[in-house]
């Protein structure tokens, strides 16, 4: 029984995350200009903003 609860819990949390993620993607960012300067030192690949920028480039 326990293993099933574990798997179900993981699945549920993933679904929640997915839901919020998709919702968030739908909402357009209101920025006109983001100061990339502040981000230049950041080495974080996971940064969504950065990815967007690198794709646009």
């Amino acid at each position: 029984m326990e293993p099933f609860i574990a798997i179900i819990t993981v699945a549920v949390i993933i679904t929640i995350y997915l839901g919020t993620y998709m919702l968030n993607k739908k909402v357009p960012a209101p920025y006109e200009k983001i100061d990339t300067e502040t981000c230049s030192a950041c080495t974080n690949y996971a940064c969504g903003v950065k990815q967007q920028f690198s794709e646009e480039r």
């Binding site: 949390i13 929640i16 995350y17 839901g19 919020t20 993620y21 919702l23 968030n24 909402v27 357009p28 960012a29 209101p30 920025y31 983001i34 100061d35 502040t38 981000c39 950041c42 974080n44 996971a46 940064c47 969504g48 903003v49």
Partner: peptide, 29 residues
């Protein structure tokens, strides 16, 4: 934590452009 950040980001996007300008860039980090 990841979903919370998504929610917060969404809320900020929707309700306060000013706040998003200040914080939005840091939220995904």
């Amino acid at each position: 934590i990841a979903s919370l950040v998504q929610l917060v980001e969404m809320a900020i996007k929707k309700f306060s452009k000013k706040l998003y300008k200040g914080l939005g860039i840091y939220l995904p980090l």
